[in-house]
Design a protein around this nucleic acid. Structure first.
Lengths: 194, 194
DNA sequence: GTCTATACCTTGATAGAC
DNA sequence: GTCTATCAAGGTATAGAC
Protein backbone atom coordinates (compact mmCIF):
# COMPACT_ATOMS: atom_id res chain seq x y z
CA UNK A 1 0.00 0.00 0.00
CA UNK A 2 1.03 3.50 -0.76
CA UNK A 3 -0.50 6.35 1.18
CA UNK A 4 0.30 9.23 -1.13
CA UNK A 5 -1.16 8.00 -4.43
CA UNK A 6 -0.89 4.78 -6.39
CA UNK A 7 1.27 1.80 -5.61
CA UNK A 8 4.40 1.51 -7.67
CA UNK A 9 3.00 -1.34 -9.76
CA UNK A 10 -0.25 0.42 -10.47
CA UNK A 11 1.60 3.47 -11.68
CA UNK A 12 3.87 1.38 -13.88
CA UNK A 13 0.85 -0.32 -15.41
CA UNK A 14 -0.74 3.03 -16.14
CA UNK A 15 2.36 4.43 -17.75
CA UNK A 16 3.04 1.36 -19.84
CA UNK A 17 -0.61 1.06 -20.74
CA UNK A 18 -0.63 4.62 -21.97
CA UNK A 19 2.47 3.97 -24.03
CA UNK A 20 1.03 0.79 -25.54
CA UNK A 21 -2.27 2.49 -26.26
CA UNK A 22 -0.50 5.20 -28.20
CA UNK A 23 1.86 2.83 -29.97
CA UNK A 24 -0.42 -0.09 -30.82
CA UNK A 25 -3.98 1.14 -30.41
CA UNK A 26 -6.65 0.01 -27.97
CA UNK A 27 -7.32 -3.24 -29.82
CA UNK A 28 -3.65 -3.77 -30.53
CA UNK A 29 -2.33 -4.26 -27.02
CA UNK A 30 -3.23 -6.81 -24.36
CA UNK A 31 -2.70 -7.52 -20.69
CA UNK A 32 -0.07 -9.97 -21.83
CA UNK A 33 2.04 -7.16 -23.29
CA UNK A 34 1.98 -5.37 -19.95
CA UNK A 35 2.60 -8.48 -17.89
CA UNK A 36 5.58 -9.50 -19.96
CA UNK A 37 7.24 -6.10 -19.94
CA UNK A 38 6.72 -5.54 -16.21
CA UNK A 39 7.69 -9.09 -15.30
CA UNK A 40 4.39 -9.78 -13.56
CA UNK A 41 1.45 -12.04 -14.31
CA UNK A 42 -1.82 -11.41 -16.06
CA UNK A 43 -3.80 -11.72 -12.84
CA UNK A 44 -1.74 -9.06 -11.09
CA UNK A 45 -2.93 -6.49 -13.58
CA UNK A 46 -6.53 -7.54 -13.06
CA UNK A 47 -6.03 -6.89 -9.36
CA UNK A 48 -5.28 -3.22 -10.08
CA UNK A 49 -7.63 -2.87 -13.04
CA UNK A 50 -10.50 -5.36 -12.99
CA UNK A 51 -11.22 -4.78 -16.68
CA UNK A 52 -9.43 -3.38 -19.68
CA UNK A 53 -12.13 -0.76 -19.79
CA UNK A 54 -11.20 0.40 -16.28
CA UNK A 55 -7.56 0.66 -17.31
CA UNK A 56 -8.46 2.59 -20.43
CA UNK A 57 -10.60 5.06 -18.53
CA UNK A 58 -7.92 5.76 -15.96
CA UNK A 59 -5.32 6.30 -18.67
CA UNK A 60 -7.50 8.93 -20.29
CA UNK A 61 -8.43 10.59 -17.03
CA UNK A 62 -4.79 10.73 -16.04
CA UNK A 63 -4.00 12.62 -19.23
CA UNK A 64 -6.92 14.92 -18.65
CA UNK A 65 -5.83 15.65 -15.09
CA UNK A 66 -2.32 16.49 -16.29
CA UNK A 67 -3.70 18.84 -18.89
CA UNK A 68 -6.17 20.56 -16.58
CA UNK A 69 -3.60 20.98 -13.86
CA UNK A 70 -1.05 22.58 -16.15
CA UNK A 71 -3.57 24.84 -17.81
CA UNK A 72 -5.14 26.04 -14.60
CA UNK A 73 -1.93 26.45 -12.66
CA UNK A 74 -1.65 30.16 -11.72
CA UNK A 75 1.95 30.25 -12.85
CA UNK A 76 1.04 29.01 -16.32
CA UNK A 77 -2.11 31.04 -16.76
CA UNK A 78 -0.12 34.25 -16.78
CA UNK A 79 2.55 32.96 -19.13
CA UNK A 80 2.85 34.64 -22.53
CA UNK A 81 0.66 33.13 -25.24
CA UNK A 82 3.74 32.02 -27.11
CA UNK A 83 5.03 30.05 -24.14
CA UNK A 84 1.73 28.34 -23.53
CA UNK A 85 1.48 27.50 -27.21
CA UNK A 86 5.03 26.14 -27.25
CA UNK A 87 4.29 23.95 -24.26
CA UNK A 88 1.34 22.40 -26.05
CA UNK A 89 3.25 21.82 -29.28
CA UNK A 90 6.12 20.31 -27.34
CA UNK A 91 3.82 17.73 -25.80
CA UNK A 92 3.20 16.45 -29.33
CA UNK A 93 6.89 16.50 -30.21
CA UNK A 94 7.46 14.46 -27.08
CA UNK A 95 5.11 11.77 -28.40
CA UNK A 96 6.98 11.63 -31.67
CA UNK A 97 10.27 11.22 -29.86
CA UNK A 98 8.82 8.54 -27.59
CA UNK A 99 8.76 5.66 -30.06
CA UNK A 100 6.48 7.46 -32.46
CA UNK A 101 3.45 7.49 -30.25
CA UNK A 102 0.39 9.05 -31.78
CA UNK A 103 -1.61 11.31 -29.50
CA UNK A 104 -4.01 9.61 -27.11
CA UNK A 105 -7.02 11.26 -28.69
CA UNK A 106 -6.13 10.24 -32.24
CA UNK A 107 -5.43 6.69 -31.16
CA UNK A 108 -8.79 6.33 -29.44
CA UNK A 109 -10.60 8.18 -32.21
CA UNK A 110 -9.78 5.57 -34.84
CA UNK A 111 -10.86 2.79 -32.47
CA UNK A 112 -13.80 4.87 -31.28
CA UNK A 113 -16.65 2.64 -32.43
CA UNK A 114 -15.10 -0.42 -30.81
CA UNK A 115 -14.77 1.28 -27.42
CA UNK A 116 -17.11 0.88 -24.45
CA UNK A 117 -19.38 3.95 -24.07
CA UNK A 118 -17.70 4.91 -20.81
CA UNK A 119 -14.42 5.36 -22.63
CA UNK A 120 -16.05 7.30 -25.42
CA UNK A 121 -17.35 9.72 -22.82
CA UNK A 122 -14.07 10.47 -21.10
CA UNK A 123 -12.20 10.92 -24.34
CA UNK A 124 -14.92 13.29 -25.55
CA UNK A 125 -14.56 15.40 -22.44
CA UNK A 126 -10.78 15.57 -22.71
CA UNK A 127 -10.92 16.58 -26.34
CA UNK A 128 -13.57 19.19 -25.75
CA UNK A 129 -11.53 20.73 -22.96
CA UNK A 130 -8.42 20.94 -25.13
CA UNK A 131 -10.32 22.41 -28.04
CA UNK A 132 -11.85 25.15 -25.92
CA UNK A 133 -8.53 25.98 -24.30
CA UNK A 134 -6.81 26.30 -27.66
CA UNK A 135 -9.54 28.54 -29.06
CA UNK A 136 -9.31 30.79 -26.02
CA UNK A 137 -5.53 30.96 -26.25
CA UNK A 138 -5.63 31.93 -29.92
CA UNK A 139 -8.32 34.48 -29.27
CA UNK A 140 -6.35 36.01 -26.45
CA UNK A 141 -3.23 35.98 -28.57
CA UNK A 142 -4.87 37.77 -31.42
CA UNK A 143 -6.48 40.41 -29.23
CA UNK A 144 -3.15 41.16 -27.63
CA UNK A 145 -1.47 41.33 -31.01
CA UNK A 146 0.84 38.38 -30.51
CA UNK A 147 -0.55 36.31 -33.36
CA UNK A 148 -2.42 37.03 -36.55
CA UNK A 149 -4.60 34.80 -38.68
CA UNK A 150 -7.74 34.74 -40.77
CA UNK A 151 -11.12 33.49 -39.63
CA UNK A 152 -12.47 32.67 -36.19
CA UNK A 153 -10.31 31.51 -33.30
CA UNK A 154 -12.38 28.39 -32.99
CA UNK A 155 -11.92 27.40 -36.63
CA UNK A 156 -8.22 28.06 -36.40
CA UNK A 157 -8.00 25.97 -33.24
CA UNK A 158 -9.82 23.13 -34.97
CA UNK A 159 -7.40 23.32 -37.86
CA UNK A 160 -4.31 23.29 -35.67
CA UNK A 161 -5.49 20.45 -33.43
CA UNK A 162 -6.42 18.38 -36.46
CA UNK A 163 -3.10 18.84 -38.13
CA UNK A 164 -1.20 17.99 -34.95
CA UNK A 165 -3.20 14.81 -34.57
CA UNK A 166 -2.74 13.86 -38.19
CA UNK A 167 0.91 14.72 -38.60
CA UNK A 168 1.91 12.54 -35.67
CA UNK A 169 0.29 9.63 -37.46
CA UNK A 170 1.55 10.33 -40.96
CA UNK A 171 5.07 10.82 -39.64
CA UNK A 172 5.09 7.08 -38.99
CA UNK A 173 4.71 6.47 -42.70
CA UNK A 174 6.68 9.32 -44.21
CA UNK A 175 9.28 10.08 -41.57
CA UNK A 176 9.73 12.51 -38.68
CA UNK A 177 10.22 15.36 -41.06
CA UNK A 178 6.55 15.20 -41.93
CA UNK A 179 5.69 16.20 -38.37
CA UNK A 180 8.28 18.96 -38.17
CA UNK A 181 7.19 20.44 -41.48
CA UNK A 182 3.69 20.67 -40.12
CA UNK A 183 4.88 22.44 -36.98
CA UNK A 184 6.86 24.86 -39.06
CA UNK A 185 3.84 25.68 -41.19
CA UNK A 186 1.59 26.11 -38.16
CA UNK A 187 3.94 28.69 -36.65
CA UNK A 188 4.36 30.41 -39.99
CA UNK A 189 0.61 30.72 -40.46
CA UNK A 190 0.17 32.23 -37.00
CA UNK A 191 2.52 35.13 -37.71
CA UNK A 192 3.86 35.37 -34.19
CA UNK A 193 5.17 38.88 -33.56
CA UNK A 194 7.80 37.52 -31.21
CA UNK B 1 -16.09 -16.75 -62.31
CA UNK B 2 -16.15 -13.30 -63.74
CA UNK B 3 -14.11 -12.53 -66.81
CA UNK B 4 -13.93 -8.76 -66.57
CA UNK B 5 -12.61 -8.28 -63.04
CA UNK B 6 -13.50 -9.71 -59.64
CA UNK B 7 -16.40 -11.96 -58.88
CA UNK B 8 -19.34 -10.29 -57.23
CA UNK B 9 -18.54 -11.77 -53.82
CA UNK B 10 -14.90 -10.78 -53.94
CA UNK B 11 -15.85 -7.21 -54.75
CA UNK B 12 -18.39 -7.13 -51.93
CA UNK B 13 -15.79 -8.40 -49.49
CA UNK B 14 -13.36 -5.72 -50.60
CA UNK B 15 -15.89 -2.95 -50.27
CA UNK B 16 -17.16 -4.09 -46.90
CA UNK B 17 -13.62 -4.75 -45.70
CA UNK B 18 -12.64 -1.23 -46.62
CA UNK B 19 -15.63 0.15 -44.78
CA UNK B 20 -14.92 -1.93 -41.68
CA UNK B 21 -11.26 -1.00 -41.75
CA UNK B 22 -12.13 2.68 -41.76
CA UNK B 23 -14.87 2.33 -39.16
CA UNK B 24 -13.34 -0.10 -36.68
CA UNK B 25 -9.62 -0.22 -37.43
CA UNK B 26 -7.52 -3.13 -38.64
CA UNK B 27 -7.53 -4.89 -35.29
CA UNK B 28 -11.15 -4.02 -34.67
CA UNK B 29 -12.80 -6.01 -37.42
CA UNK B 30 -12.78 -9.72 -38.18
CA UNK B 31 -13.74 -12.16 -40.89
CA UNK B 32 -16.80 -12.85 -38.78
CA UNK B 33 -18.03 -9.27 -39.28
CA UNK B 34 -17.79 -9.66 -43.03
CA UNK B 35 -19.31 -13.15 -43.09
CA UNK B 36 -22.29 -12.07 -41.05
CA UNK B 37 -23.05 -8.96 -43.04
CA UNK B 38 -22.69 -10.68 -46.41
CA UNK B 39 -24.58 -13.78 -45.30
CA UNK B 40 -21.70 -16.08 -46.12
CA UNK B 41 -19.37 -18.21 -44.05
CA UNK B 42 -15.93 -17.56 -42.66
CA UNK B 43 -14.32 -20.05 -45.05
CA UNK B 44 -15.80 -18.39 -48.13
CA UNK B 45 -13.81 -15.27 -47.37
CA UNK B 46 -10.64 -17.27 -46.96
CA UNK B 47 -11.23 -18.66 -50.43
CA UNK B 48 -10.99 -15.14 -51.90
CA UNK B 49 -8.41 -13.83 -49.44
CA UNK B 50 -6.25 -16.57 -47.90
CA UNK B 51 -5.16 -14.26 -45.09
CA UNK B 52 -6.30 -11.05 -43.48
CA UNK B 53 -3.04 -9.56 -44.63
CA UNK B 54 -3.91 -10.34 -48.26
CA UNK B 55 -7.28 -8.67 -47.82
CA UNK B 56 -5.71 -5.63 -46.21
CA UNK B 57 -3.15 -5.23 -48.97
CA UNK B 58 -5.77 -5.43 -51.70
CA UNK B 59 -7.94 -2.85 -49.94
CA UNK B 60 -5.06 -0.40 -49.85
CA UNK B 61 -3.99 -1.10 -53.42
CA UNK B 62 -7.55 -0.62 -54.60
CA UNK B 63 -7.58 2.82 -53.04
CA UNK B 64 -4.25 3.63 -54.56
CA UNK B 65 -5.38 2.53 -58.01
CA UNK B 66 -8.47 4.71 -57.72
CA UNK B 67 -6.35 7.69 -56.74
CA UNK B 68 -3.70 7.18 -59.42
CA UNK B 69 -6.29 6.67 -62.12
CA UNK B 70 -8.18 9.84 -61.27
CA UNK B 71 -5.07 11.93 -60.93
CA UNK B 72 -3.48 10.73 -64.15
CA UNK B 73 -6.61 10.79 -66.24
CA UNK B 74 -6.01 13.31 -69.07
CA UNK B 75 -9.38 14.91 -68.46
CA UNK B 76 -8.57 15.59 -64.81
CA UNK B 77 -4.99 16.67 -65.32
CA UNK B 78 -6.11 19.74 -67.23
CA UNK B 79 -8.84 20.66 -64.76
CA UNK B 80 -8.47 23.94 -62.86
CA UNK B 81 -6.53 23.68 -59.60
CA UNK B 82 -9.63 24.59 -57.67
CA UNK B 83 -11.60 21.72 -59.17
CA UNK B 84 -8.86 19.18 -58.49
CA UNK B 85 -8.57 20.44 -54.94
CA UNK B 86 -12.33 20.27 -54.43
CA UNK B 87 -12.39 16.71 -55.67
CA UNK B 88 -9.79 15.72 -53.11
CA UNK B 89 -11.54 17.49 -50.25
CA UNK B 90 -14.83 15.92 -51.25
CA UNK B 91 -13.36 12.46 -50.95
CA UNK B 92 -12.83 13.20 -47.26
CA UNK B 93 -16.30 14.64 -46.83
CA UNK B 94 -17.60 11.44 -48.36
CA UNK B 95 -15.90 9.44 -45.63
CA UNK B 96 -17.49 11.57 -42.95
CA UNK B 97 -20.92 11.07 -44.48
CA UNK B 98 -20.35 7.33 -44.81
CA UNK B 99 -20.82 6.36 -41.17
CA UNK B 100 -17.97 8.56 -39.98
CA UNK B 101 -15.22 6.60 -41.60
CA UNK B 102 -11.76 7.93 -40.96
CA UNK B 103 -9.44 8.00 -43.94
CA UNK B 104 -7.73 4.74 -44.82
CA UNK B 105 -4.31 6.18 -44.17
CA UNK B 106 -5.14 7.51 -40.73
CA UNK B 107 -6.78 4.27 -39.74
CA UNK B 108 -3.77 2.19 -40.72
CA UNK B 109 -1.35 4.75 -39.29
CA UNK B 110 -2.60 4.30 -35.73
CA UNK B 111 -2.41 0.51 -36.11
CA UNK B 112 0.85 0.81 -38.02
CA UNK B 113 3.14 -1.05 -35.63
CA UNK B 114 0.77 -4.01 -35.41
CA UNK B 115 0.61 -4.43 -39.19
CA UNK B 116 2.55 -6.95 -41.27
CA UNK B 117 5.46 -5.27 -43.10
CA UNK B 118 3.84 -5.88 -46.47
CA UNK B 119 0.92 -3.70 -45.45
CA UNK B 120 3.18 -1.02 -44.06
CA UNK B 121 4.85 -0.84 -47.46
CA UNK B 122 1.73 -0.37 -49.54
CA UNK B 123 0.29 2.23 -47.23
CA UNK B 124 3.59 4.10 -47.31
CA UNK B 125 3.53 4.18 -51.09
CA UNK B 126 -0.04 5.40 -51.24
CA UNK B 127 0.61 8.18 -48.77
CA UNK B 128 3.78 9.27 -50.49
CA UNK B 129 1.98 9.49 -53.80
CA UNK B 130 -0.81 11.61 -52.35
CA UNK B 131 1.62 13.90 -50.58
CA UNK B 132 3.62 14.56 -53.72
CA UNK B 133 0.51 15.16 -55.78
CA UNK B 134 -0.82 17.68 -53.29
CA UNK B 135 2.47 19.55 -53.12
CA UNK B 136 2.58 19.75 -56.92
CA UNK B 137 -1.00 20.95 -57.10
CA UNK B 138 -0.39 23.72 -54.57
CA UNK B 139 2.80 24.74 -56.31
CA UNK B 140 1.08 24.90 -59.64
CA UNK B 141 -1.81 26.81 -58.09
CA UNK B 142 0.45 29.41 -56.57
CA UNK B 143 2.49 29.90 -59.73
CA UNK B 144 -0.65 30.47 -61.72
CA UNK B 145 -1.98 32.87 -59.11
CA UNK B 146 -4.98 30.80 -58.09
CA UNK B 147 -3.94 30.36 -54.48
CA UNK B 148 -1.72 32.22 -52.07
CA UNK B 149 -0.01 31.04 -48.91
CA UNK B 150 3.17 31.37 -46.89
CA UNK B 151 6.04 28.89 -46.90
CA UNK B 152 6.90 26.03 -49.22
CA UNK B 153 4.29 24.08 -51.16
CA UNK B 154 5.48 20.91 -49.56
CA UNK B 155 5.05 22.20 -46.01
CA UNK B 156 1.63 23.52 -46.85
CA UNK B 157 0.66 20.17 -48.36
CA UNK B 158 1.85 18.40 -45.23
CA UNK B 159 -0.23 20.73 -43.10
CA UNK B 160 -3.38 20.28 -45.14
CA UNK B 161 -3.12 16.49 -45.37
CA UNK B 162 -2.50 16.27 -41.64
CA UNK B 163 -5.49 18.38 -40.75
CA UNK B 164 -7.77 16.43 -43.09
CA UNK B 165 -6.66 13.18 -41.50
CA UNK B 166 -7.06 14.51 -38.00
CA UNK B 167 -10.35 16.34 -38.40
CA UNK B 168 -12.07 13.24 -39.75
CA UNK B 169 -11.09 11.48 -36.54
CA UNK B 170 -11.88 14.26 -34.09
CA UNK B 171 -15.25 14.81 -35.73
CA UNK B 172 -16.25 11.48 -34.24
CA UNK B 173 -15.76 12.93 -30.77
CA UNK B 174 -16.84 16.53 -31.23
CA UNK B 175 -19.36 16.32 -34.05
CA UNK B 176 -19.40 16.79 -37.80
CA UNK B 177 -18.98 20.52 -37.41
CA UNK B 178 -15.40 19.95 -36.34
CA UNK B 179 -14.61 18.57 -39.77
CA UNK B 180 -16.43 21.32 -41.64
CA UNK B 181 -14.76 24.05 -39.62
CA UNK B 182 -11.42 22.61 -40.62
CA UNK B 183 -12.37 22.60 -44.30
CA UNK B 184 -13.52 26.17 -44.02
CA UNK B 185 -10.24 27.24 -42.47
CA UNK B 186 -8.19 25.38 -45.05
CA UNK B 187 -9.91 27.18 -47.91
CA UNK B 188 -9.64 30.49 -46.09
CA UNK B 189 -5.91 30.05 -45.58
CA UNK B 190 -5.37 29.25 -49.26
CA UNK B 191 -6.87 32.56 -50.43
CA UNK B 192 -8.37 31.18 -53.60
CA UNK B 193 -8.80 33.94 -56.13
CA UNK B 194 -11.87 32.23 -57.56
C1' DG C 1 -17.38 -21.04 -54.75
C1' DT C 2 -19.43 -22.16 -50.70
C1' DC C 3 -20.28 -25.16 -46.99
C1' DT C 4 -19.35 -27.94 -42.34
C1' DA C 5 -16.23 -29.02 -39.12
C1' DT C 6 -12.41 -28.29 -36.66
C1' DA C 7 -7.65 -27.01 -35.08
C1' DC C 8 -5.09 -23.76 -32.72
C1' DC C 9 -3.98 -19.50 -30.66
C1' DT C 10 -4.78 -15.17 -28.09
C1' DT C 11 -7.63 -12.55 -25.23
C1' DG C 12 -10.03 -10.79 -21.13
C1' DA C 13 -11.35 -12.48 -16.94
C1' DT C 14 -12.06 -15.41 -12.44
C1' DA C 15 -11.07 -18.61 -8.33
C1' DG C 16 -8.39 -19.65 -4.85
C1' DA C 17 -3.65 -20.57 -2.69
C1' DC C 18 0.17 -18.03 -0.69
C1' DG D 1 -0.40 -8.02 -4.01
C1' DT D 2 1.03 -11.60 -6.60
C1' DC D 3 0.86 -16.22 -8.02
C1' DT D 4 -0.97 -20.76 -10.48
C1' DA D 5 -4.49 -22.67 -12.86
C1' DT D 6 -8.21 -22.43 -15.57
C1' DC D 7 -12.12 -20.73 -18.39
C1' DA D 8 -15.12 -19.13 -22.18
C1' DA D 9 -15.13 -16.40 -26.14
C1' DG D 10 -13.48 -14.92 -30.21
C1' DG D 11 -9.79 -14.74 -33.69
C1' DT D 12 -7.28 -16.65 -37.98
C1' DA D 13 -6.78 -20.39 -40.69
C1' DT D 14 -7.21 -25.23 -42.90
C1' DA D 15 -9.27 -29.79 -44.66
C1' DG D 16 -12.40 -31.85 -47.19
C1' DA D 17 -17.34 -32.61 -48.78
C1' DC D 18 -20.64 -30.72 -52.01
Amino acid sequence: MCVAGKSSTKRKILELGESLLQRLGYNGFSYHHIAQELGIKNAAIHYHFPTKEALGIEIVQRTRTRFTKWVNHPENRVKPVRQQFDWFINSYSYNLKSQHRVCLIGSLATDYYTLPPSMQSVINELTDEIQKWMARLLDHGRQSGVVDFQGSSQDKAVCILSSLTGSLQLARLLGDDFFYRNIKQIYLDLNFTY
